[in-house]
């Protein structure tokens, strides 16, 4: 159900944007960047979006989701790292003292309208 709230947030932000730019437009594509740390399942997000966008200018839109990996830097060995598991351990030295740089995104990059 997490995805329902995220889809709802995305639709509201885009509707606001349309009001400013082109109130009569229909949205066809939504480009998103979703970080792995947000625990958002793309398929669940698509389904939520499909349901919640009905009878809005987004009802014909498809989501284009780019997944963003969890990256950061180890505070001990100072190496840049990328986490493939949610164990928060440095893959080089095993330290848990990490500075996370990416992976928290729930980013709406752009929309395409008709």
């Amino acid at each position: 159900m997490h995805e329902m709230a995220v889809a709802d947030g995305i639709i509201k932000i885009i509707e606001e944007k349309l009001k400013e730019q082109d109130p009569k437009a229909e949205v066809r594509k939504v480009h998103l960047k979703i970080g792995k740390l947000t625990c958002v399942e793309p398929e669940a997000l698509r389904l939520s979006f499909e349901i919640l966008s009905r009878e809005t200018p987004l009802q014909k839109a498809s989501l284009y989701i780019k997944s963003i990996p969890i990256t950061g830097k180890c505070k001990d060995c100072r190496k840049n790292l990328r986490l493939t598991k949610l164990d928060f351990a440095c893959p080089f030295c095993g330290s848990f003292r990490l500075e996370i740089k990416t992976g928290r995104e729930l980013f709406i990059e752009s929309i395409e309208i008709k």
């Binding site: 995220v6 947030g9 995305i10 932000i13 885009i14 944007k17 730019q21 082109d22 437009a25 066809r28 594509k29 947000t38 928290r104 995104e105 729930l106 980013f107 709406i108 990059e109 752009s110 929309i111 395409e112 309208i113 008709k114």
Partner: peptide, 14 residues
């Protein structure tokens, strides 16, 4: 089709 940049992060907005 016309492209509009949005550049809004839901978590940042939160």
């Amino acid at each position: 089709m016309k492209k509009i940049t949005v550049l809004t992060d839901l978590l940042e907005a939160n």
